[in-house]
Every structure is written in C-alpha cells, then in structure tokens.
Design a protein around this nucleic acid. Structure first.
Lengths: 231, 231
DNA sequence: CGAATTCTTTGCGCCATCGCAAGAATGGTT
DNA sequence: AACCATTCTTGCGATGGCGCAAAGAATTCG
C-alpha cells in the first residue's frame, strides 16, 4: 500500500509524539479513497462509521437545520482529519462532508480506529487535543456570532480562510477556495445579500478584489482592523 | 479519602465501561475541592491545569470577548465534568468557571489525568466521546443562533435548562437555576431587554411564570411549539 | 458560438432586535 | 419598617440586516 502523502501526514497533530514506526502501523490499517467533485464522504445523521484524513482536494462540512436551512461549518484542506465523531461510540455524523473538487483521503473504519486508540494511547490523547480545539473553535464562533456585527465576522472569517489556504501573489493574498457569496454567508451566519454588499464596499475601499467564487486580499491590514477594532 | 459522591460519579459517561475497581483507582488520584459562591475554579486564559467533576452546587462557564462582552456558555450541574481542555497538552481554559453557589468537586491535576488516560485507554475513549458531544452541541448552537429568531432560541434554551434541572411542582416545572435576564440573554445571544419582553409575553399567554431569577413553566407544550414550529 | 445556467450586485421597503432611560418590583439588611 | 442594591419591565426611537425582485456578469454546455 503506497502512501505518498505519509510524509505530510506524519506532521499532523494526530500523530504527534508517535514514532514513525507506529505511524506506519497505524496507516497500514487505513485504506485510501478518492472522491469526485460534489460527491459526499458521508451525510449528516449517517451512523459515524469512518474517520478520514484529507490528503488532497477540499471538503465542505455542512449542517442543515430542521427547517431546511444550511450552514457551512468549515472547509477541510489537506492534511486535516474529519469525521472525528467516529472515534466515539454510537455517534452519528453531525454534518455532511462533500468534496468541493476531486479529493483523496485516508480512511479508517470505526472498529479499526477504535482498536488503534486502545493500542496507542498517545493517539487517543492527540485525538482529545484535536477535539478540545474544535470545542474551543465553536465556542469562539458562537461567541462571535452572538456579539459581533456581520462585517467583523466576515472579516475574521476571510482572514481565517486566507490563513488556511492563502497564496501570496504579486497582487495580494489570494484565497484559494471556490466559495460563493452564499457559502460565505452560511459560514458567518448571514445572507448572501449582506455578504455581497460588504464585499462590494470593501472592494470600493481597495481592501480586496472579489470575483466570482474567488477573492484576493489587497490590503490585509485593513481587514485586520475591521476584525479587531472596537465598536 | 471518603467519597460519598462516588456512587453517582460511577454512572457518568466518562467512566462508562470501566470496572468499579478501576474507577476506584482513578478516583484515588483525585482530590476534593470546595468553593464558596462566586469563587472561580479557574479563569479564562489560565493554563489548563486541572480537570473537574462537579459533585454538588452549580457552576457557570463564561467566555468574555476582546471588547469586554460576556457570554454565558453553559451551566454545569452535578455530576458533570468541566475543564476538559486540561486533558490536552498546553492548552488554556477557553472559559471561566465560577461557582453560582457553594460547590464541591472532584479534581485531577493535569499530570494525574494524563497518566490516567494512558493507563486506562477506555477513559481516553470516553473523553473523546464527551468532547465530540461538546463539539456537536456548539455546532448546533452556532447553527441555531445563525438561523433562528431570538424567541425560538430562548424557548429551546429554557427547555434545555428545564431538562437539566427542572423540578416538577404542583404549579408546573420549576427551573431551579438563579439566572437573571442578563444571563439568559448571554446564553442565547441577545440582550436582556429582548429576553424580558419575550418572557413578559409568554407570561401574559400563561405559558410561564417568571420571577426574579427564577421561573416556572406552566405549559411546556407551548414552549415546545415555539421551539419547533416552522417560520 | 450562443443559449442556458449559475452566481453576483443593488435598489427598496420592512421589521426584528437593539439599547437608552425611567420607573417599578423584589429581596436583603440593619 | 424603612432603606438600599439589584433586577426587571416597558415605551420609544434608531438601525442593522433581511429578502424580494430584477438586472447584470461569469461559466458551462450543447
């Protein structure tokens, strides 16, 4: 089972303080999966039966509410684990995971990953750490949405995305994700109209250059200011 | 070290599938702590150095934002663990934990709990499960606040609280928590004015009886309807 | 290459929620 | 019993953000 992505996988939090030999063992009980754009790794409310680490492509994690509204909770980029609920027993996925483009991932079945957690306690500890970070992130985002204006939330989100996948180009920092206004709106908890208006305003101020499903940050400091300044 | 609360502690998720003997061992490396009302178990941004299980009293978990706003993220009742970030390395508490009344708790130091996680892998798996549930809860609340009106969010929150600590009385279900309008507002992400207005309205409809820092649900079904009905 | 589809922008009216301010209610204190 | 400190209520004006509708780009596809 050839694993070119191993070299990068080794560096991630999940495998911290685990010897290369053990990592190799752990990876041996995984298999690879590829997905075409738009395909679903899993759907919300499915029994959580597999745990993934994305090795290429991009994945969107979406939650829909009882009344049909959708929320884009996060975008997964390589090399990030997702479907971590499968680490716990008897859970269902709280989100749907959809490939935004063609993707590859390393996959463990629930039973495999649970055996690994018992066999390699450090792995369990790392998983705890990852989940603890997720809890923090969502507490934080909950706090933000409860207390801050849309403009600030959007600025923060774009900076976060730029941090995740930003690429420096001569013109500025390019956010390398095909996100529509609707997607951005779902991420910060607003409507596509409001997002569109704010982006237009920023564009007229020379802060960004926003095109269809892409965006270049011309003046990051301006966004930082919006994201942090009081009021 | 006498542990009257042990009997109840044994039932919680954290100790599931762990033998009574092992639980006893685990509890032996804890110590007890008592706190007076208003005292802090820990403050936000403190290094996470201890992990707690509340055995009596009530604890509020609060997060404050850079600009000084406060959010009441949750109320801890017995027998619930809190400070779970201490399970992970090098973390800081993302919230402050303050006793709402005089409290007792079982406490493990970070080093103790980490040794236990290694020694009892099932403990680590249970911790993973608990954290996974927290992630879900906040994803859910994030989604709610992003898509639903205040009235519905408040109805949901009150039902949740009633579920946690509700006591049936001849007059209705009494929510046994000293929460001010401000507290409720922070929990659902609104202002105390709006909470007050909504509660007044519900009171005039005969759904609840709301007093100063207390409340009795007279007609739970009415709240459920508000919490679930579409629109 | 042109039509169909999807995504984006923006004017406009609307309303849920905010937040001040002032006064009322409640509970504790001496 | 009178007082003080909180907490709660409610009128009122202000407004951020919503969401329809229609027109304008950018892509996709046949």
């Amino acid at each position: 089972m050839p694993f070119e992505p191993v070299s990068r996988v080794e560096e991630i939090t999940l495998f911290k303080n685990i010897s290369p030999g053990d990592i190799h063992l752990i990876l041996q009980s995984a298999h690879q999966k590829r997905m075409d754009a738009e395909e679903f790794f899993f759907l919300q409310d499915d029994p959580a039966e597999a745990f993934y680490i994305l090795t290429s492509g991009k994945v969107r994690l979406t939650q829909y509410t009882a009344d049909g509204q959708q929320l884009l909770l996060r975008v997964i980029v390589p090399v990030t684990p997702f479907g971590a609920v499968a680490l716990a027993d008897h859970e269902r996925y709280p989100v749907s995971a959809q490939a935004m483009e063609s993707c590859t991932a390393v996959v463990w079945s629930k039973s495999a990953i649970q055996q690994l957690l018992i066999r390699f306690p450090q792995l369990a500890m790392n998983a705890v750490k990852i989940l603890a970070e997720h809890v923090q992130e969502f507490q934080q985002r909950f706090t933000e949405i409860a207390t801050q204006r849309v403009e600030r939330r959007l600025a923060r989100m774009i900076l976060r995305l730029a941090h995740q996948t930003g690429v420096k180009t001569p013109r500025g920092v390019e956010v390398n994700l095909p996100l529509s206004r609707q997607d951005l709106a779902e991420m910060v908890g607003t409507t596509l109209y409001t997002v569109s208006r704010i982006l237009s305003q920023w564009e007229s101020q020379g802060l960004i250059h926003a095109g269809r499903e892409k965006m270049i940050i011309l003046y990051p400091h301006g966004l930082v200011k919006i994201a942090e300044e009081e009021t």
